[in-house]
């Protein structure tokens, strides 16, 4: 039994290796990109459109709306990064329905990679929005004493982001594997359904947290409602 899909190695040469995490990631990417291409190659701008276009529009507009609700005023700028996070994590978790599939999000390497992406993207978006000086000054607010704490907070939340997703997905997969050996009927089905829900919730949490971090870095908050 493997704790991580990284341990399932199909091919290796010196430092380079092709493990299950990378292979299944490519699979998820392939499905997402080819599916999108098939639908968007003949988009309709009129009132009549295909069911698949409707589905994609609902998903894209839903992500856009969520980003806007968190506080980012220009969601179309961030949807590329945040939407890809949600779709990748969500799709990787949904595929657990298929037997033999190992979710890439169950690998700490993948979650770490995604957390690093968020860790890098947050300051980049922050600098793009308010400039380097203003962004760095935010670390010393309210006073310069808070600088180390802010840095620790930045690193620890990235670590938490990675471990949270990994822990949830890995535990779900492991529990399902254990239950299959104990009670092979009915209960694993319930757990699979539950795992699907948990997977989507984790994708949502991961994306929303990344959105909140970016919103905090770019200071793009909605004005406080007047009471």
């Amino acid at each position: 039994m493997y704790l991580s899909s990284d341990d399932i190695i199909f091919w290796q040469w010196v430092f380079f290796k092709l493990n299950a995490t990378i292979v299944f990631t490519w699979l998820v990417m392939l499905v997402l990109v080819v599916g999108s291409w098939l639908v968007t190659r003949k988009l309709s701008t009129g009132l009549h459109r295909s069911r698949w276009q409707n589905l994609l529009e609902i998903i894209v507009m839903g992500i856009n709306q969520q980003i806007a609700e968190v506080g980012l005023r220009r969601p179309e700028v961030y949807i590329g990064f945040l939407g890809s996070l949600f779709l990748f994590v969500g799709m990787a978790n949904i595929f657990t329905l298929f037997p033999g599939y190992e979710p890439p999000t169950g690998s700490l390497s993948t979650t770490t990679a995604l957390a690093i992406c968020v860790f890098v993207a947050v300051p980049l978006f922050g600098i793009e929005a308010s400039g380097l000086r203003e962004y760095l000054r935010a670390y010393m607010k309210p006073t310069f004493i808070m600088l180390p704490f802010n840095i620790i907070s930045e690193v620890s939340r990235t670590l938490a982001l990675a471990v949270r997703l990994f822990g949830n997905m890995m535990s779900g997969t492991v529990i399902l594997a254990i239950l299959l050996t104990i009670t092979p009927f009915i209960f694993p089905i319930v757990m699979s359904a539950f795992g699907l829900l948990m997977g989507m919730v984790q994708a949502y949490i991961f994306t929303i947290l990344a959105t909140v971090y970016i919103a905090a870095a770019t200071h793009e908050h909605k004005p406080e409602p007047r009471g």
Binding site: L3, D6, M29, G80, F81, S84, S107, A113
Partner: peptide, 18 residues
């Protein structure tokens, strides 16, 4: 638990996906 090659590969994969 962390395979740094995989981490790097996944970052590249994710950027390509984006």
């Amino acid at each position: 638990l962390i395979d740094w090659f995989t981490v790097f590969a996944q970052i590249i994969n994710f950027l390509i996906l984006v």
